[in-house]
């Protein structure tokens, strides 16, 4: 039950796991809603962008909008004008997968008119194992700088603290503690806890927000 506002903007430190969260979220959303689009606004990374998985997402009923430049071989900072379609279509559930840091979030400035209170959510993905977002100050700095660039407010935190295949429940709880402190300081609620599927059954009961099971879609089996 993903009862968030129609436009979901996923932001955070680069390498925090925004794309993996966005894809898993969009696939889950497409099970509940008919009209789901994911816009890949990543102008920061040359590899591991959600557009690489457009085939898989299409199979799950998610429309992918990215660059006009086809394929994975380009690192031009180009975003398609087609992003406006799903933003303007009030029947469409949109996930905006944004590039990392305030640098990547600059693409959002162009869509400011659509970020109307109550019509959008902006979720900040927090991985407490990334060097710059290990501390309360680090996470708040990221939120402040991204809010400044996008001129939109963060409406929810996502605890996505992990070490890929080496993730433990303790890691997730460590991230939760960090997110709780950020939440206390900023009054931004923790909306989701993202957890790799294999650990779901080991979780204690005191997990904040909705648990979002994560399949590692961007990561090949050998990685």
């Amino acid at each position: 039950m993903l009862k968030d506002n129609r436009i979901r903007v996923i932001i955070g430190h680069y390498g925090s796991g925004k794309t993996e969260f966005s894809i898993n979220y969009a696939i889950k959303l497409a099970k509940e809603e008919k009209n789901v689009a994911l816009a890949d606004l990543d102008v920061v990374n040359p590899y591991f962008r959600s557009r690489e998985k457009h085939g898989l997402l299409k199979e799950h009923g998610v429309k992918v909008v990215s660059s006009y430049v086809k394929g994975s071989g380009s690192d031009l900072p180009a975003v398609s004008g087609d992003v406006l379609g799903p933003l303007q279509d009030k029947s469409c559930n949109v996930v905006l997968d944004v590039g990392g840091d305030s640098m990547g979030a600059r693409t959002l400035g162009r869509y400011k008119d659509y970020f109307i209170e109550g019509e959008y959510d902006m979720f900040c993905v927090v991985n407490g194992n990334r060097i710059e977002t290990q501390t309360l100050e680090g996470v708040i700095n990221h939120i402040t700088s991204i809010e400044g660039t996008t001129r939109a407010r963060v409406t929810g935190l996502i605890n996505n603290t992990h070490l890929l295949r080496a993730t433990t429940v303790d890691q997730i709880l460590k991230g939760q503690e960090l997110c709780r402190r950020v939440s206390q300081a900023t009054k931004i609620p923790i909306k989701y806890t993202a957890v790799v599927e294999s650990l779901i059954h080991q979780l204690p009961e005191n997990i904040e927000g909705t648990i979002m099971p994560i399949k590692m879609i961007m990561r090949e089996a050998w990685m």
Binding site: Y14, G15, N129, R130, I131, Q134, H162, L163
Partner: peptide, 8 residues
């Protein structure tokens, strides 16, 4: 030092 997640 604990392990951290980094890009190559």
């Amino acid at each position: 030092m604990d392990k951290v997640l980094m890009k190559g």
